[in-house]
Design a protein around this nucleic acid. Sequence first.
RNA 1: GCCCGGUUCGUCUAGCGGUUUAGGACAUCGCCCUCUCACGGCGAAGAUCACGGGUUCGAAUCCCGUACCGGGUACCA
Length: 509
Amino acid sequence: MTDSTSPRPERVRFAPSPTGYLHVGSARAALFNFLHARHTGGKFLLRIEDTDLERSTDDAVRQILESMKWMGLEADEPAVYQTKRVDLHARRLEELLAAGKAYRDYCPKDRLDQLRDEARAAGTIFSYRETMFPAEEALAAQEAGAPFVIRFRTPPGEVTAFNDLVYGRIETANDAIGDFVIARGDGSPLYNFTNVVDDVDMGITLVCRGEDHVSNTPKQVLLYQAFGVQPPRFAHLPLILGTDKQKLSKRHGATGVDQFASLGILPEALLNFLALLGWAPSEAEFDEVMTMEELTKRFSLDRVNKSPAVFDHEKLMWMNGMHIRRLSAEELVARVLPVLAERFPGEHVSGNALVQGDAMLRGVIDLAKERCRTLIEFGDALDFFFAAPTAWDDKAMRKLLAAPEAVERLRETGRIIAATWEGAVAKSGIAGQPESAERLEAWCHTMEEPLRAFSESAAVKFGAIAQPVRLAVTGRTASPPLFHGLWFLGAEEVARRIEACAAAAEKLE
RNA sequence: GCCCGGUUCGUCUAGCGGUUUAGGACAUCGCCCUCUCACGGCGAAGAUCACGGGUUCGAAUCCCGUACCGGGUACCA
């Protein structure tokens, strides 16, 4: 069995241009490179392509680095900054010039535009050749010290091809490529050139990047040939689209890695989701929720799809919930705590009267983990632990507590809870802290018994007893398990909230 | 315009000439679990495999054309 991607340790790189935040499409390219490197036991490198001084910013560099770190996709070697390698680029440029593989082109811009227009009018592709600018004019321009660019002298008549790991063999006629510009008039090198020079210098063996680069690839292959080196292998990745099948952009919602972080998305969930956009393991049925270890083990570039994929935000949310539930209790607390601290500032988060200490916090967070799809949602689900409700769901109030006998039943329920409390503590062996889930469980059962009895004697369903209490205590009809919540809140607080709600119900109109 | 690429349930996908009444996942709907909401379990609905021609005993799978979508067409990356 020959596997084209597993045995040889590969040196790959992620090469973003720092013109903004890290887009999820780029993040996926980074991820695929990372997975491939790990899968083959190779190296994952980072190169900042900042040769466009107009658009590159330090802030973008910082932001990209931060996002990469957040995702855990850190490079195995120090990041390479292209602007710091001007000497190397200049040297390579001089080599090409000296070998006659590149030349100074003096054709003025308006002349170029004219040629382009002519080609378009004729319905053919425009590809520049040095013969298009008469030699004598070029000589005159040179002597006059006119501006020029440096172009690669593309061998005419040939076909340049490469075998893409994803798209297969792609052939391009050199005459459709033409003599492309590799350096600006001021001598600063351009993308296709620096890309090749640096990939050669960094010993890159496989280039994996977005599909928008396929048309650049033949030019790069030509450059590799000009330098007399074997081109790396190539793998291009299909684009990520929005729900309207257009290229994913800001108007589709979050597109930046940093935005997903602040939405309460776990990096492992984002990565897992992104991995499954355009790639799938070989089994027809498999658990889609995977760790990086599992992804690394199963990942293979030759199973990447050719067609673009729509970014399904709903599925990301589901996957995030799955990853939240798979986190250990300690890990979960560590992730949720900052969210809670920001949402409920001050002494409330740890050591206040309602939620005391980390053990309490941990217990309370655990109550919500099955109902939260993002870290942010923990704040929504647990808000009543940090402050008593100031208002109760109006629809529920009218449905549950409109009748005077219903309000009286709520008060009676409150009295039963208060009366049962201490006995339940004693019987369950639970003290001030939730030392064990078993004891808390026992406390809940002991508390539940007399309320069950009450519902029977009152000839109402148990829900008719529990729901009003839930409403009183949380302000809502949906919450984490009621009895667990009561215990964390404490007897006095529960009593206070029940009375406040009952009083409000009486004023209902 | 020209060059290149893509097209399987709403979405992500499995499928590489017969094992397919096209499998799984998200979302949707129903049932179960149940103090609510979730989680979990079970089930349903959902794809004339873009369309039209071929090749073949046989095609979602191979070939050609058309349509639609996308990428590129820079002294950007």
